[in-house]
């Protein structure tokens, strides 16, 4: 009996010691969402911008993101864990700690309703609302294998944060349109974005924002823009509807689709924009076609 008690007490003490000394967080929140981890990560990055003194510290693949959040006078450390259950469901676990009050929180959490618990619920709810709005107003439909034609473009090359891609496009749009107007170049089809470098973990991009133009005999001198000719290619295609700021939701969907179906891809999406946001349409209806070039012979 003593032995059993000793084992139970020992196990309890080990548990308490583990809880106090090893577990690196004081509070945990779990929920699921109908999108892919990459999309959740980008949404966190966008949401993070609206928070004061908060920063995304590190992103590890599509599995983990750590973030520092300053909320109602307290500084929290959030570690987000993501697990893609299937194409359209991600399980999210948020492990929350307050480095300056770790011990106090560990004592209070099991017995009361400490501030970390209130704040964690509020922060998680705030993010959940943002994510829900984002998912409500965007849609991605995978079309499957497709192809892209060769095209001549006039481009501006940009390096931005992933979440600032649309801002970059807005800034460059007028320079491009005034150039093609000034030189009477005939624009064909819709403007495109070609990703040249994508660092998902740091959330940065290098890309070309381009107008496709009809071929001309002599290209005009180009001091502020670059002419680029892109070769045709096989590509996976998705249709995206929603604000162009978050069109990378389709990138993650294509990457996942490629992975599940054995395609090797360039990992550098190409976007064709069908609507002009300046015409004031409902952003839910903006349409873009997103391509991910296939690099294997599958």
């Amino acid at each position: 009996m003593k032995k059993i008690v000793a084992i139970v007490v020992g196990a309890l003490m080990a548990g308490v010691a583990y809880y106090f000394l090893v577990v690196p967080y004081e509070f945990e929140v779990r929920f699921s969402t109908k999108t892919l981890p990459g999309d959740v990560i980008e949404t966190i990055r966008i949401w993070n911008r609206s928070l004061q003194q908060s920063k995304v510290e590190q992103v590890v693949g599509f599995n983990e993101l750590s973030q520092q959040i300053f909320w109602e006078g307290s500084k929290y450390h959030f570690v987000w864990k993501f697990e893609a259950i299937h194409d359209s469901l991600t399980k999210i676990v948020i492990r929350i700690s307050e480095p300056e009050n770790r011990l106090t929180n560990k004592i209070l959490v099991p017995f009361g309703n400490p501030k970390i618990e209130v704040d964690a619920a509020a922060i998680s709810k705030a993010f959940f609302d943002v994510l829900k709005t984002h998912l409500d107003i965007t849609r991605v439909k995978i079309i499957g294998e497709s192809s892209l034609d060769s095209t001549l473009c006039v481009c501006r090359s940009l390096k931005t944060d992933q979440v600032s891609k649309a801002n970059g496009m807005m800034s460059e749009y007028s320079l491009l349109i005034s150039f093609v107007d000034a030189h009477n170049l005939k624009v064909k089809n819709e403007p495109i974005v070609r990703i040249e470098e994508w660092d998902h973990e740091n959330g940065t991009l290098a890309f070309d924002f381009c107008f496709q133009i009809h071929p001309v005999d002599v290209l005009p001198p180009a001091e502020t823009v670059t002419f680029k000719k892109f070769r045709g290619t096989r590509a996976l295609k998705a249709e995206y509807r929603g604000n162009y700021i978050t069109s990378d939701r389709a990138w993650y969907a294509l990457l996942r689709y490629a992975e599940m179906n054995g395609y090797k891809t360039s990992g550098k999406p190409i976007e064709y924009f069908h609507d002009n946001p300046n015409l004031g349409m409902n952003e839910r209806n903006w349409k873009a076609e997103i391509y991910l070039p296939i690099t294997n012979g599958n």
Binding site: M170, Y173, S174, I177, S178, D181, N278
Partner: peptide, 9 residues
């Protein structure tokens, strides 16, 4: 005047 529209940006 060139057709740049400041309000786009």
């Amino acid at each position: 005047e060139d057709n740049y529209t400041d309000f786009h940006r």
